[in-house]
Write a protein that binds this DNA or RNA. Structure first.
Lengths: 226, 226
DNA sequence: TAGAAAAGTGAACACAAATTCAAAAATTGA
DNA sequence: TCAATTTTTGAATTTGTGTTCACTTTTCTA
């Protein structure tokens, strides 16, 4: 026996994996999945193309992992909001606002996640993730309807509609258009109003709004610094 | 001089073009753009691959034309509804209902039109067409707001949200799932309610509904038999 | 330090599908 | 029928990437 993986090596391996993921995320954020070819990822990560296949069985699985990580982060934030003690309408407002705002301000991972054409394997994952988003909203809706805060409705359809609504509203704005903060906030507010009305929540009377905003900020910070 | 395109030939050429389009539409309806490779299209159309390039400069342009024709038909139907004399809320209801119902019952061209991954050139066209759909709804909204039938709102955002909402609601159901008519109608109604509430239209008090349904049916028939 | 095993390389390969084009078949007018 | 011209064919070419693998380099133990 003349070789056994040392602790140092173990670390370097993990490091490599990380660099691949980071490189992919960076490329996707800059130019979508389209720009994240294996050769490019390898170049950015500073390794050879062959290396990538030591860590990921295929490009599709690499993409799925990147997508999953990013979606997971968003889901965590949204879930924190959804699980709060506020009335359903308010939580819904906060969740929509939070998602749209983050998508608008963040790097344009959003475009890739929302609509960019990809191969079917990744697409399947994307649809699954979209459903996950829907489930967060669905939970809020179920709760709201149970407590009589929202009118009875088809929560599955409503949840899907909500995800679709803010998704579509983002597609245009996200692309090359660089809008200023004022425009962005206007869009956020428009989408929020739309969604809230849609499920029969009130749009007026925003008491307690500040408290929830606080929750959002805290959650977001926790997420970013992790 | 020994050859000049005769009338008969002229006809055959046009016929060829038609067969290519029809073949493409058929393949897309059955298996999405993915299944509509040039070779497959040629096979279905009963011609050689080379022929296709005599009529279309590239696969992408062929796709765009097929997409455009299908979208155009839908737009025409929706526009007829949008231009009606009914109150804005009712027209919106009818338009959403009509679109969702047609997508659910028709061949699954809808899948291809809504979410299937395609190359960027076609994607650009799709986004444009989505915007066209949005514009129809926007027109209804503007009118409704002007006449005081709907509350003031960001009509651009609302229109985008509406398109996104019913689109997303369709994505799941459209695929391989074969639902019965009852389920389909339930979904149609759910989406309709969602969208109508979202823009601040009333959901109750559907007087005159039947009259508008009539309009829808007539328009649809005209479209199909054309 | 040797030499066994693993990590790492990147040019070569594979592959699928769009596109081309030289040659064949068909059409037309004289 | 013939020759000019166009239409049609489909095998070969092109293209762009993902993936592999024979080889090099590095890491680790005895």
């Amino acid at each position: 026996m003349a070789y056994r993986r040392s602790l140092l090596m173990e670390e370097r391996l993990a490091n490599n994996r990380d660099r691949i993921l980071t490189a992919t995320r960076k490329l996707v954020a800059e130019g979508g999945f389209r720009e994240a070819q294996i050769a490019a990822v390898a170049a950015v990560a500073g390794i050879s193309t062959g290396m990538i296949y030591r860590y990921f069985p295929s490009k599709a699985e690499l993409f799925v992992e990147v997508l999953g990580a990013a979606v997971g982060a968003e889901i965590e934030i949204l879930t924190a909001i959804a699980d709060g003690p506020e009335p359903a309408g308010m939580r819904l407002s906060a969740a929509v606002t939070c998602f749209v705002r983050r998508a608008l301000h963040g790097p344009n991972l959003a475009y890739a996640f929302i609509i960019e054409p990809v191969d079917p394997e990744v697409e399947t994952a994307r649809i699954r993730y979209r459903k996950e988003f829907g489930d967060v909203f669905k939970a809020i809706l179920i709760d709201g309807v149970e407590k009589g805060e929202l009118p009875a409705q088809d929560v599955d359809a409503s949840a899907a509609c909500i995800v679709g609504a803010f998704t579509e509203a983002l597609v245009g704005p996200i692309g090359p258009t660089t809008r200023n903060t004022r425009d962005k906030e206007r869009l956020v507010e428009s989408v929020r109003t739309f969604c809230l009305r849609a499920v029969g929540g009130v749009t007026e009377g925003e008491d307690g709004h500040e408290k929830l905003s606080q929750t959002i900020r805290t959650t977001r910070k926790r997420q970013t610094t992790k």
